[in-house]
């Protein structure tokens, strides 16, 4: 690691102030992506702004038909939350499949979403459920937040505060995970909720995307059989040692069927 200065603010305002004053400073939440990157010397921030001291970034609550999850809420807390398990069980289930227990005890929902790794789980849930992203200065729709591989609409000094998930009528998630890393090779989140019927795919492409043919098929007939004939175009999908673009395209159909089964 290159050397860096360290700050541990206790309020969102103070964190934003530090980030605004130093364009090379970076916020850190669970650190399970950033610290390995620092150890590889792939990144050289002048300062780390540790968000773990900001109580207002944590917690899970229900307000009417919306579940509000603080950005610093850890995957393990999402997986075991009674509020989430009863309102959006597919989201709790998704969180329980991220990495392993050690990872889930540190990694945070906000950190994962702000990093926008193509193989991360949460972006598909946020996109399919029509989540809203509350930052220190504005609220963004999922479609506007995600901007491709490792890229979001967040400004360098902008902090994600909380994610608002409308409670769906039903939702389901299925993924094929890489057996070693447990990252998603292809994951599909299906939801029938406030944003209509949506199918969002992670792991297969350079970023999360909606599978509109599957959405149309499910709108006509909500069943695994209805999406069995959906063909995903492999053009532009990820191709690597773990699987070709054609294989991932095939997985999109298979995982969509399984996600519909999961949703019931």
């Amino acid at each position: 690691m290159y050397d860096f200065a360290y700050h541990k603010p206790t309020s969102i305002a103070d964190a934003v102030k530090i980030l605004a004053a130093d364009p090379d400073a970076k916020p850190v939440s669970g650190g399970h992506t950033l610290l390995p990157a620092l150890k590889h010397r792939l990144n050289q921030p002048s300062a780390l702004v540790d968000l773990s001291g900001i109580a207002e970034l944590r917690g899970i609550k229900r307000e009417g038909d919306t579940i509000i999850i603080g950005a610093m809420t850890r995957h393990g807390e999402v997986a075991t939350s009674d509020i989430i398990k009863s309102a959006i069980p597919a989201l709790a289930h998704m969180a329980s499949t991220i990495g392993d227990t050690q990872v889930r005890n540190r990694g945070t929902m906000g950190g994962s979403l702000a990093n926008n790794d193509p193989a991360a789980d949460y972006p598909a849930a946020a996109m399919a459920l029509g989540a809203k992203f509350q930052t220190d200065r504005r609220t963004l729709a999922a479609e506007d937040f995600f901007q491709g591989m490792f890229t979001t609409a967040l400004e360098p000094d902008e902090l994600l505060i909380a994610i608002h998930f409308p409670v769906p009528k039903k939702a389901g998630y299925a993924k094929l995970k890489n057996p070693a890393s447990r990252y998603s090779m292809c994951g599909v989140f299906v939801a029938d909720g406030a944003a209509g019927i949506r199918v969002a795919v992670n792991g297969a492409g350079p970023g999360v995307f909606r599978q509109e043919a599957a959405e149309a098929a499910l709108s006509a007939n909500w069943s695994p059989e209805a999406v069995a004939g959906v063909k995903q175009d492999p053009d532009g999908l990820n191709s690597d040692i773990h699987g070709s673009a054609e294989y991932r395209a095939h997985l999109v159909t298979v995982m969509t069927k399984r996600a519909v089964l999961d949703a019931g």
Partner: peptide, 13 residues
Amino acid sequence: GRRTNSCLALAIS
């Protein structure tokens, strides 16, 4: 009380 990878935890934090 929680299982943690100590290699990815900054002591200062």
